[in-house]
Nucleic acid binder design. Structure first.
Lengths: 256, 256
DNA sequence: CGAGGGATTGAGATTCATCAATCTATGTGG
DNA sequence: CCACATAGATTGATGAATCTCAATCCCTCG
């Protein structure tokens, strides 16, 4: 099975079962009792692979699926008429894609993969039924959305009121802590970081040229550096301080 | 009953009953069957009045209440260490205040009233119980959040990638359509608009001086004008086009 | 009628965008 | 294994958008 644009390729042989999913604690089925998982899994139509830098879906297309990220990095963005792109968030393992206020309306945003990725796909038209029939999933969806809302509001703050270096500090802190929390790797000062300078600009509301100059300045100040798809943070405290970032803002919490 | 800062004053005499609430179709109890309303209303601790330009609650304080706006305009914002303020959203009748990812953590944002306002208050520590016990309320909360997320993402786009005039156009379109949808007043080209130019700047990531100049330009172009707390839109289509605003983005939709 | 907060305007500084060119790393085909 | 192609990174020069500082004006309200 393949989607129309041939970017999503279904894994036919042994897709990951929900009850042995390594990112379940982060994802939509966190909180679903083990005994229920076989049932909730029936809502998953397929597990797809997608290569790096491919479109997953596009703004204003009808929304066929809601996805959970099983593996990889993706960028969620909107495009203006003049071609400018604003990255709304970076999706990492456990994150949802394709959920929106009106599930029947065209998508309000686009998604591309930043790395090779694996996505679990749930048909959008089955989501209401799933949420009605499993309160744990409905609650978890609300929890994930509340977390994303928190991040989105912080990003509004950073883009609205902070300087270039502060915005980049905030953005890199967010990803640094999110990646560390996913991979439970508290020790290292480096993370894999597949974004180009242009991507960083699209996320922070800056041009790639200005991102380049700002990154150089941050490197020279001994704050952090990005090289060979690796983000190395030399002074985490200073970076958080500069970007006005607080690590607890990226957590999800039990709501009810 | 009065809160510690004396800004919120409880209405002792005949507070509005949920079953006769004129904004219920917009608010948290939309979708709750009539027969249930007396029960859900028990979660409302009080109905408060607050004068214009008073603080309702402040970032980093413990969150005592979640509120529903019954009447009035309020501004939800974050403050940076340097004193800069970013307005995250304007709350209008039917909107929620004080819901966040971690209900037990300190508030992640502040709220002030822009006009005299009336708020229905639900103790934060009772929210989990309310959501567990009434699926309609839990669903509605998710719907309202999904709508707010949609708006927040659009605002991220506008602040990240649009010019001053485009941002102001977007912001005013959003409020223009939201107010019209609340008051079901499709005909008039004017709405009540209590924000100062500084408020508009804090919402759009601009200084009040630049807002002033941009508003003058918009007035001269015959797009819109703000005067005496009134926003008059002369060319709605052009304004939406300029701001990249689509009216359906402010709607809530039944999720499940 | 006076006080005070917002609105308005001007002048100059700063940040960031734009345009243009070069450099570097990586992968590809011969 | 090398020449080449390509995408991203880097740097420079210039200009535009927006900010900052400062002064004045104009409502509104007591």
């Amino acid at each position: 099975m393949t989607d129309t644009k041939n970017n999503l390729v279904a894994i036919e042989h042994n897709p990951t079962r929900c009850n042995e999913c390594s990112v379940r604690r982060l994802a939509l089925f966190h909180g679903v009792p083990e005994a229920q998982l076989n049932w909730t899994q029936t809502y998953r139509k397929a597990q797809f692979t997608v290569e790096a830098r491919k479109e997953v879906y596009r703004e204003s297309e009808p929304g066929e699926f809601m996805f959970t990220v099983y593996h990889g990095w993706l960028a969620v963005f909107k495009t203006l008429d003049n071609g400018k792109r604003q990255i709304l968030r970076i999706a990492l393992p456990g994150d949802m894609l394709g959920f929106q206020s009106n599930l029947e309306a065209p998508m309000t945003h686009s998604v591309i993969s930043l790395t090779d990725a694996v996505l679990c796909a749930f048909p959008s038209n089955k989501i209401p039924e799933l949420l009605r029939n499993d309160m744990n999933v409905a609650r978890r969806l609300t929890e994930l959305n509340a977390r994303d809302m928190n991040i989105c509001q912080s990003r509004l703050m950073t883009i609205g009121k902070q300087s270039a270096i502060e915005r980049i500090a905030f953005f890199c802190c967010e990803l640094f802590y999110r990646v560390k929390s996913i991979y439970k790797d508290e020790a290292s000062d480096s993370i894999f970081f597949p974004l180009s300078q242009e991507d960083i600009g699209d996320a922070t509301g800056l041009t790639k040229i200005h991102v380049n100059r700002t990154l150089r300045s941050m490197r020279e100040q001994g704050l952090m550096e990005i090289h060979a798809k690796t983000l190395k943070v030399h002074d985490v405290e200073a970076l958080c301080e500069l970007g006005n970032f607080s690590p607890q803002s990226i957590q999800t919490y039990r709501l009810y």
